[in-house]
Nucleic acid binder design. Structure first.
Lengths: 117, 117
DNA sequence: GGATAATGATACGGGTCCGTAACGACCCGG
DNA sequence: CCGGGTCGTTACGGACCCGTATCATTATCC
């Protein structure tokens, strides 16, 4: 059951959601940060810095810095892996889950308003 | 004819497209820049700095800086208005139109791959 | 013409992010 | 126990962006 969208609809949806994010959102996440956040909340744990860097095709410091920023915002938490203390396990938070849920509702809502064509 | 998307579909679509953008795209536009670019290419001209600032709910320097960056990337051009020389008219470019079109195709393509639920 | 208003650009101090390189902490095999 | 490999983090120089305040240019109105 594929999701059918026309190019013009996709663009209008993309624009409208980004407008909402710019206007309303407390945080101003970059494309990279958005990809990281959604990966953490959609893919199965555990998530590590190295794993995220590989999935996004970026270097490790990029992930570290993004986690710093998103940690300050309360969207994620880090914890040392007890079994292999070199690893850091990235964990979800209530605030992060709420933000992701809010984004989903935003997309759904704006999609509903899209006229055909 | 509203566009029906479930929250989980919306999140997976959002994540996948952002992943593609991070991995493939030459430029790394912020949410603001994306909103500006799509507004220029979807809304009717003429577009001015002041008008864009009002639509996005941001200050004028934000628009000026974004136009500087996107101008370097060849995505937009600026031209003085001949009738009111205080105004600057933002114009579309071939490269910008291609980039927008590529984004649209990306969203459409990824949406097609979304399973139900 | 002169005062006023409006537009876009710029200056400034502060923050974030980039990629490369180096670092400390840790695991593991010999 | 110790050298090599792996993990995440930090240092560094440079680039970009933020918001506030100010600027030069242009239009408008008396």
């Amino acid at each position: 059951m594929p999701l059918e969208i026309k190019p013009s609809q996709a663009l209008r949806l993309w624009r409208q959601v980004h407008l909402d994010l710019v206007r309303d959102s407390d945080f101003d996440l970059s494309a990279r940060q958005t990809a990281i956040l959604l990966t953490i909340y959609l893919e199965l744990p555990p998530h590590t810095v190295r794993g995220l860097a590989a999935q996004l095709g970026v270097t490790k410091p990029v992930i570290t810095r993004a986690l710093d920023t998103m940690g300050k915002l309360g969207l994620v938490t880090r914890k040392r892996d007890a079994f292999d203390r070199r690893n850091v396990v990235i964990q979800r938070t209530v605030a992060g889950a709420l933000a992701v849920e809010r984004l989903a509702d935003l997309v759904v809502e704006r999609a509903k308003e899209m006229g055909g064509g």
